[in-house]
Each structure stands twice: as C-alpha cells, then as structure tokens.
C-alpha cells in the first residue's frame, strides 16, 4: 500500500499531506488538518453534513478520494468565519434559531454559501432545493429555510452598503 503526497489549497493556505490510498477529503480535513467543523455524518453522501466547496462548487467531502483532486482549492466552514464575529450566514442561522443540536449546521451553511454565490436573491423554493441534500434530524427545516433567505438579504444589504 503506497502512500502519496497530495497538495491542496485549504481555506487559502497551501497544504501538503501524506495520505493512504482512498483517504477521503473528509478524513484529510478532520484527521490530517484538524478542521473538525466539517462533520462526518453518514459517509454515504446522503446527509450533507460534510458539505464543503471544492473549486467553487459544493461537494460532499466523504465522496472524494483526496488523491483524485490533487491541486484543488477547498473552502470549509472555517474559511467562512471571520477573525472577529460571524459571517452573515452564520449570524442568520444563530439569530433565526436555525440550529438545534447543531450537527448539520456547518453543512447547511456551506450549502447556503454555494447557493448565494450563484444566486444572491433566491426564492424560497431555491433555498429548499439548495439544502435538499442536507438532512436535519431535529427537523428544524422551516427555521433553516428562513435563515437561508435572511442570510441572502443580509449579504445583499452588506453589498449595497459597501457600494454606497
């Protein structure tokens, strides 16, 4: 069994790691990089708890053998959080009580980030569709959908303020 070196840009920093064959991006982030904000839920691509952004697109980290994405750019929940305070999506989730146990939250927030990067003014159906691969077993979906729309409004307002 031959280990190999994989280079990734993770949250803006270039990282190299030695991985065993078949190591998933999820394992690489959590075990090798200590980035435990990305959750391990089902390991099957069914729950969305491990959603991260790979080369600008939301993907499930448990479904990516890290050796096959050598050179990719990865953004995790840790990249979203500024040095001080919270990202508008995180604020919207916090203030809208969109977290119960919190296990699905980082995946929900990354799915939201993926949606808002493409569509800054989503409809409610767009929001539902964007998180349709993310499971919340506390079943707090209504509050989560509200938070996605609130986050979109906050980000649009911030952009307007910046432009003004």
């Amino acid at each position: 069994m031959k280990h190999s070196v994989v280079a990734l840009t993770i949250n803006g920093a270039e990282r190299q790691m030695l991985v065993a064959p078949g190591t998933t991006l999820l394992d690489a982030l959590r075990e090798s990089q200590g980035l435990t904000g990305t959750r391990r839920g089902c390991d099957q691509g069914a729950c969305g708890a491990c959603t991260v952004i790979v080369d600008g697109k939301t993907m499930m980290a448990c479904l990516l053998p890290v050796e096959t994405i050598d050179g990719a750019t990865i953004d995790t929940i840790e990249s979203l959080t500024p040095m001080d305070g919270l990202h508008p999506i995180q604020e919207a989730f916090l203030e809208g009580f969109a977290t119960q146990c919190g296990f699905c939250t980082s995946g929900m927030i990354m799915a939201t980030a993926g949606l808002l990067a493409k569509n800054p003014d989503p409809s409610r159906e767009d929001a539902v569709r964007a998180i349709s691969g993310n499971i919340c077993r506390c079943t707090g979906y209504e509050a989560i959908i509200d938070a996605v729309l609130d986050a979109a409004a906050r980000m649009r307002a911030a952009k307007r303020d910046k432009a003004a």
Binding site: P21, G22, T24, D43, Q44, G45, A46, M60, C62, L63, L64, P65, E67, T68, I69
Partner: peptide, 27 residues
C-alpha cells in the same frame, strides 16, 4: 472505475473486498 464517486464511495466507505484499486476518470 470512479468518476463522480457518488455511487462508488458509499461502497468503499462501507468497506468492500470487491476491488483493491480505484481508477479515477477525473483528469
């Protein structure tokens, strides 16, 4: 063979003896 991984990886993550190597079509 593995392309997107959405079907192969659940099998691999669950543990399998069906194959010992993966050949990715990504590149």
């Amino acid at each position: 063979l593995i392309a997107g991984g959405t079907a192969v990886m659940p099998t691999l993550n669950g543990g399998t003896d069906e194959f010992t190597s993966l050949v990715s079509l990504r590149a």
